[in-house]
Amino acid sequence: MFRRLPDHNAETIRFTFDGAPLAARRGDTVAAALLANGIATCRATPAKGTARGPYCLMGVCFECLVTIDGTGNRQGCLVALEEGMRIETQAGARRAVAP
């Protein structure tokens, strides 16, 4: 959905999204890394299960909520991408205990 400017030469970072191996750059937030990999949808709402993706990228809309390394409701646009991060779609409401 977003492409990178050609002169961008930061270090490559590897991570997974719903199990699929992907790559982005050092300095990316989780939300930016998803957008750069063509991923527009990162969660389904708890209310009606509709698809949502990053909207404001500045921490106010809470649309880019994802599960990162097992912790849900993380704001993807505020978390720096780290090597080996396990990022997952959030479907519906969070559970008190992981299934």
Partner: peptide
């Protein structure tokens, strides 16, 4: 306005400034 693919103009500006990302298509 809740559909994935709809963002704020500010979000696109942040993606460009902070990450060198440009919307495609």
């Amino acid at each position: 306005w809740t559909l994935p693919g709809v963002l704020t103009a500010g979000a696109a500006q942040i993606a460009l400034k902070a990450h060198g990302l440009v919307p495609e298509g």
